[in-house]
């Protein structure tokens, strides 16, 4: 067996392990869907009269909800990584003839699969409630690619957090990802926010990624925002990846 196929075989076993864990802890998936789906329902049914249905606002808010769901879902990786370190199972892997980093690869691949699945479910709900994307094949592909990059970036950041924190602290951290989208352009335009929030809202990663995703899904022109969004995802992802690799080498439970 070559080194690469060996790595893939080991990582595959790790992914399988993570997916079993995911199926055993379905509650975390339900929670990651609950908030965005709840918000969707609120807009359509509660404010349904005030905001014309089938139109503007559901379309406006959907990209932000997708990212909120993906960010929360990815952040669950921090909890699983922290639990793995605490349970000592990582130390067992380290004494076995496998590359230790396959453990992290398992977490990241499983998180990506999990989040693509929840994104699809959320998208399905949104379409039922009147979301009408206006994307070409090309821009739809760009939207999926951006979402994927966003999921990977947040998953690697969460992996780093999981290596540094206890499971309890890691699970506290995940709630931040629910609140960050509120101070971005996900729900309302930053111009309508108090000035002290505007600066933060305009320059935090959620805003460019939301704007770019919105452009890809609704047929606008992403322009420079698209590149800023990609730069954020690549930057955060690299920071999480390199940080995780460095910490993982030195970490013992």
């Amino acid at each position: 067996m070559t080194a690469v196929s060996l790595y893939v075989a080991h990582a595959g076993t790790m992914v399988r392990r993570e997916l079993i864990r995911t199926l055993r802890t379905v509650d975390s998936i339900v929670i990651s869907l609950m908030v965005p789906v709840g918000i969707l329902f609120a807009f359509v049914w509660v404010f349904g009269g005030a905001i014309q249905s089938g139109g503007g606002y559901v379309n406006y808010v959907m990209p932000g909800l997708l990212l909120m769901c993906a960010a929360f879902g990815s952040s669950q990786t921090a909890v699983s990584v922290a639990q793995d370190i605490k349970s000592g199972v990582v130390d067992r892997f380290r004494t076995m003839p496998i590359a230790g980093s396959t453990v992290l690869a398992g977490h990241v691949v499983a998180s990506t699969l999990r989040n693509l699945a929840t994104s699809a479910v959320l998208l399905g709900c949104a379409v039922l409630l009147g979301f009408s994307p206006q994307a070409t094949w090309g821009s739809a592909l760009a939207a999926v690619a951006l979402l994927l990059a966003f999921i990977l970036a947040f998953t690697w950041l969460s992996t780093l957090a999981g290596l540094l924190l206890s499971p309890e602290a890691a699970s506290g951290l995940t709630s931040i990802t629910i609140f960050l989208p509120y101070v971005s352009s996900a729900f309302v335009r930053p111009e309508t926010m108090p000035s002290w929030l505007q600066g933060f809202a305009e320059h935090q990663p959620f805003t460019p990624v939301t704007e770019a995703l919105r452009a890809f899904l609704l047929g606008g022109d992403a322009g420079a925002t698209g590149w800023i969004a990609v730069a954020w995802c690549v930057g955060l992802g690299l920071a999480g990846w390199v940080g995780s690799a460095v910490i993982f080498r030195g970490r013992r439970s």
């Binding site: 079993i20 864990r21 349970s87 000592g88 199972v89 130390d91 067992r92 004494t95």
Partner: peptide, 13 residues
């Protein structure tokens, strides 16, 4: 192979 003093099993499996 090693069995450490602290357990090293996956509790979710």
């Amino acid at each position: 192979s090693v069995t450490s003093q602290a357990s090293a099993v996956d509790e979710f499996l």
